[in-house]
Amino acid sequence: MSVDITPEGFADDGSYNLRLYVAGQTPKSLLAISNLKKLCEEHLAGRYRIEVVDLLVTPQLAAGDQIVALPTLIRTLPPPLKRVIGDLSNTEKVLVGLDIRRRDNL
């Protein structure tokens, strides 16, 4: 099961397609959803699509993106595939991980 929480009026022109894998309503999962939503609104307003996948309900979907720990955020578009693990509370790390900001400090 996946839930699309992309805002209305999204145009498919080089924007971000994000997929968040969670495990039911574990604290980190809840936190991750909350953080991601906030982050996208701040930095990718109008050019992102989010899909939340609950692996407690559909564990078989874990295989596709080789998910090992939850929550995990996957950038499916633009390529290449990017992956950020954790509750997404470190905004800087997420922005770098998703190539929204240059990886200067790494």
Binding site: A23, K28, L56, P59, A62, A69, L70, G86, D87
Partner: peptide, 18 residues
């Protein structure tokens, strides 16, 4: 930063919450 892991097994994927 995570509180659940996905474990593969003979009967398929399983999610374990920490």
């Amino acid at each position: 930063e995570v509180d659940a892991v996905v474990v593969g097994g003979s009967s398929g994927q399983k999610v374990y919450t920490l």
